[in-house]
Design a protein around this nucleic acid. Sequence first.
RNA 1: CGGGGUGUAGCGCAGUUGGCUAGCGCGCAGCGUUCGGGACGCUGAGGUCGGAGGUUCAAGUCCUCUCACCCCGACCA
Length: 493
Amino acid sequence: MSVDEDTGASGEARFVEELADKDDFSQWYQDTVRKAEMAEDSPVRGCMIIRPYGYAIWENAQRGIDDRIKATGHENAYFPLFIPGSFLQREAEHVEGFAPEVAWVTRAGSEELAEPLVVRPTSETIIGHAYARWVQSYRDLPLLINQWANVVRWEKRTRLFLRTSEFLWQEGHTVHRTEDDAERETLLILHQVYQDFVERELAMPVIPGLKSDSERFAGALRTYTLEAMMGDGKALQAGTSHNLGQNFARAFDIKFQDADGQVKIAWTTSWGMSTRIIGALVMVHGDASGLRLPPRVAPTQAIIVPIWRKEAEREAVAAVVAEVEATLRAAGVRVKADWREERPGFKYSHWELRGVPLRIEIGPRDAQKGEVVLVPRTDRTAKESVAVGELGSRVPALLDEIQRALYDQAVAFRASRTYRASSFDELAERMADREHLGFVEAWWCGDAACEAEVKTRTQATIRCLPLDQPGGSGACVRCGKPAAKWAVFGKAY
RNA sequence: CGGGGUGUAGCGCAGUUGGCUAGCGCGCAGCGUUCGGGACGCUGAGGUCGGAGGUUCAAGUCCUCUCACCCCGACCA
C-alpha cells in the first residue's frame, strides 16, 4: 500500500483510498490509530501518547469495567508504583517471568538507592505484602480489591495500544478462605466482569478458556483468558483472570486463623484488563474507512452534520439542529453538531474515520419537512428519514441495532475463520494461509512437547482450552495419541 | 535482541556522479468563490536535512558512532 505519494485529494481523503486496500493489516492498524487521533508514539521508546479521542474511549471502557467490578462486590484502592526489588524475588516463577522486562530505579537525584526499586510490571507482590498484615482472621475474607493503574513492562517490540512499554489497566487482587472460593472468584471475574463487558460493551465476541501451562501467568495455578479474533484472523487475549492458588500467599505470608482455630494459608487471585482492548476494538470492527465504534463506548454516538448554503438556510437548519440536540441529550444520547466551515462530504469521512456510529444529516430540505436523515456507520446505504419528534425513541433504538450489528458481524467473521483440524498437516496448512488465517480447533493430548512442536513449526499457539468443551475424546492433532482436551490454536498478537 | 528497511516543514515524499538563497503535494493562515459524499483560486507562514563526530575548498548527499521508528523473527497483557 502506498502512502500519500501522489497529489490531489486531501490527506484524509487519500487515507480512505489507502484503507480500501486493506491488505496490509498492520499498516492499516497503525494508520487508523494515528489518523483517528487516538494515540501516537512518544519520544520514549515504546511509550505512547493517548490523545483525547483515544482516552475518551478508554474512559468509557473503564466505566463499563469498573461498574461491573463494583457490582460484583469489589472496592478500589491504590498501591505504589515502586516496589522493593527484593519483593519480586519471593515468588520463583514470578520473578523468572517478569525479570526480563522490568524497569529499575537505582538512583534518586544524585543518591544511589540502598535497595533498588522496580517500577511495577504488575502488583501481586506489593499488594501481597500489604494483605499479609490486613488478613488475620477468616472473618477478614474474602478481601476483594481492585486498582486502576499504569504498569511498565520493557517490551522489545511495541505497538500502539497492543503492546506498549507503559500501559494503563485495572488489576484486581483478592484473598479467599478456600480453594473453591478462589476458583469461583476467578471465574466470576472472567464471565461476569470481563466477558460481559467485552461482549456487551465492545461488541466483541470472545472465547473464555483456560491457558495451557506454557501460557500461564508467572506464578499462577491456573490462568483463564478471553480470546478474541482480530480482523486479520489473529488472536488477541482480551483479558485474564488468574487463580494464584497459595503461591503468592505462601511467598508473602498471607495467613489467617480459620473458624476451627487452625492458622491456614490463604488463596488468592488476580485479574486484569488493559488499554490493549482499545487496540482490539480497532482491529475487530474497523473497516476501509477507519474505525467503527460500538455505540456503548463511542465518545460521540451521533454526529450532526448541518448542511446549508445561504444564511437563511443556515438559520433554519440551526433551529432544527438545536432541537435535535436537545431531544437526543434528553434521551441520553451523546450527540455533537459539526458546525465547522467545511463541506458536508469532508465531515462525513472525518467522522467515519473516527468511527462515530450514527450520522445525522440536516439540510434545508429536511428542515422544511421537520425531518433528519440518519446514516448508520455500519451501513452507509441504509439512510432513513425520520421526523424530529420521533428521534428520542428512534435514535436510541438505532444505536442498539448498530451495537448488535457490530457484534453479529464479528461473530460471523470469526465463524468464517474458525476451522477444525484432525491432523498436523491440516493445522499447519491453515496457519500458513495468510489470506484466511483464523482459529483452528483440534484435540490436544495435553503434552507440552506437542504444543511446543506446533509452535515451532507453525507459529501458532494454543490460545486456550475453551471452557465449553465438546466432551469425549479424540486423537491429538500433533502426536495422534488419545486426547481429552479440545483446544483453540491461533497466531497471537 | 537477531535479520531487513526508513529518518529532509505538522503529515507524505523528491533531492541526479558531494557544488549557488533545499524543492513538491497535503495540511496550516488570510481573502474570495463554493457547499446533500472528501471543492477551488489567489496570497502567505513554516525545514538547516534524527543526533554527535569525521573526510572535504564544499556534506541532505561520503565515512564512523548513536538514537528513533517500521516490517519479519524470538519474548510478552
